[in-house]
Computed example of a mutant assay.
Amino acid sequence: MSAVKVKRIASGWEKVFNVVLLIGIAALVIPFVKWAIIDAQFAGTERCTNSGACWVFIKLRLQSFMFGFYETAELWRPILVLLLWAVSIVSLFKVSYGRALRVLPFILLGMPLFSWGLLDGRWFGLSHVETTRWGGLMLSLMITLMGLSFAFPIGLLLALGRMSKLPLIKAGSIAFIELWRGVPLITVLFMSSVMLPLILPPGSEVDKLFRVLVGVALFTSAYLAEVIRAGLRGVPSGQAEAAMALGLSGPQRLFLVVLPQALRSVIPSLVNSFISLFKDTSLVIIVGMFDLLGMVQQANTDSYWLGYATEGYLFAGLVFWVICFALSRFSLKLEKAHA
């Protein structure tokens, strides 16, 4: 058989496959659009009586999905905290590296402390809102942002420690990294929230969310250490040698020459770590905390709204997808800006 005939046959089969694929997609999409939009109910305050989706359930539960059980009169606090986080992160990548280096300690240390203090309330003389009332998307974002803020400096030290020529420091860093990378996050959360109180002195008590944050930070730092180490390895040795020839000290060589190039090369991996941790926050439900997905599951137990789990899970999945997609696009813009 000639090559021309083979190409024609292959092209014919491709057309058949494309037609079948389009029919299959249409068979799935059309009923979904009919259920989700055409026959759906968007207005009202009671149970839906239509055959389509009941988005009234999402509308009435939206506040709890976003902020958990946080006091309605105090919602300005989590909104302000999230806005400040967004401004801080965007500003960090908009300013020059020198300014970013000066702002970074505030973001890594100041923002988590400010966020905790404002949301808790007692540090600023506001009404106290217990961490057990924090929930929804706010809790997912707070665990992600605070966890990464604490994990990044630890991961940087571990990466440098693993590259150290001192055997004890190198061995300790390797042991820490491999230990935490070899344990599932769900086990870390269980140990920090359930097992840790059993070994604490009698009468001592540590906030559950704080224990979760410590476990998340240590777990994430092990992965960030390997990401940062890969970036440091990718910087040509001539860069550090040139900086040494200019008379720069060790910390100056690291922070002014080597680290900027290393972090620039691992931006996709760092953003991927952020996305992965954000999605993993759904695991906190096993320790009795209600993130976005946990609040959806809790709402599904309401006897008045039974039967609307599909709408709740679709909403949660859409929120996770939008945030993760926005982060991936932001990562691409950063790559192009620093290329």
Results as ranks from 00 to 15, higher is better:
Gly288Asp: 03
Val19Pro: 01
Ser173Glu: 01
Gly231His: 06
Leu259His: 08
Phe290Asp: 11
Ile174Asp: 14
Ser265Ala: 10
Ile169Pro: 04
Arg181Leu: 08
Val4Lys: 04
Ala316Phe: 05
Gln63Lys: 08
Ala40Phe: 04
Ala86Cys: 15
Val103Gly: 02
Leu84Val: 15
Leu185Pro: 04
Trp134His: 06
Ser88Tyr: 04
Arg181Asn: 11
Val87Trp: 09
Gly44His: 01
Phe69Ile: 13
Ala100Val: 05
Ser64Tyr: 14
Ala100Ser: 06
Val216Met: 10
Thr310Ala: 15
Ser173Gln: 01
Val19Glu: 03
Ala316Asn: 05
Glu205Cys: 12
Ala100Gln: 05
Arg99Ile: 14
Met66Phe: 12
Pro197His: 05
Val16Ala: 09
Tyr308Ala: 12
Leu218Phe: 11
Ala151Gln: 09
Arg162Pro: 04
Leu104Arg: 04
Ser237His: 11
Arg253Val: 15
Leu139Thr: 03
Gly68Phe: 08
Leu334Glu: 01
Leu246Gln: 10
Leu256Pro: 00
Arg162Asp: 10
Asp302Phe: 14
Leu160Lys: 08
Gly135Trp: 06
Glu130Arg: 14
Tyr308Val: 12
Ser249Pro: 07
Val258Gln: 03
Leu139Asn: 09
Thr310Cys: 14
Arg264Tyr: 07
Gly161Ala: 12
Phe152His: 00
Leu28Thr: 02
Gly98Ala: 03
Ile23Arg: 00
Ala242Val: 08
Gly155Tyr: 05
Pro31Ile: 09
Leu60Gln: 15
Ser269Gly: 09
Pro105His: 11
Phe315Thr: 12
Leu318Pro: 02
Ala240Cys: 06
Leu232Val: 07
Ile37Gly: 00
Asp39Tyr: 02
Arg181Glu: 10
Ile169Cys: 11
Phe32Gln: 14
Leu83Lys: 07
Thr220Ser: 15
Ile30His: 04
Asn300Met: 14
Leu22Thr: 01
